[in-house]
Amino acid sequence: MIGDLITGYGFWNPLIWIIVMATGLLFAWLIWRCGESGYDKGTEQTKPYLSGNDEPPKSDVHIRGGNMYWGFTHALKGYYDKLIPLHSGVVNDYLTWFVIGVIVIFVVVMVI
């Protein structure tokens, strides 16, 4: 069939995928249409409701990039504590890794 990408085990056809997704979206749209439209722009309704408190300034609401995946890096602290210092920024270390790589690969290739 046109668009079949044979991957060894099966195939991937983006056209079928798009047709399926489009059908799904069509159903979603049909269901959405059945809903009741009670949304009015520019009224009290659209304002965020935070238990009656005032809305904080916009710059405080946004979650900054540095705060994301804090948990992930914290959970892998042992790994990151070892990994990050390796990227020391000293160009001598970079070349040391090159020499180590040459020696290790050479030994591996010669021994095996």
Binding site: I84, H87, S88, G89, V90, V91, N92
Partner: peptide
């Protein structure tokens, strides 16, 4: 000194 030249790291 290459030790001091490390604003780019990590």
């Amino acid at each position: 000194n290459s030790d001091k030249m490390r604003r780019l790291k990590e």
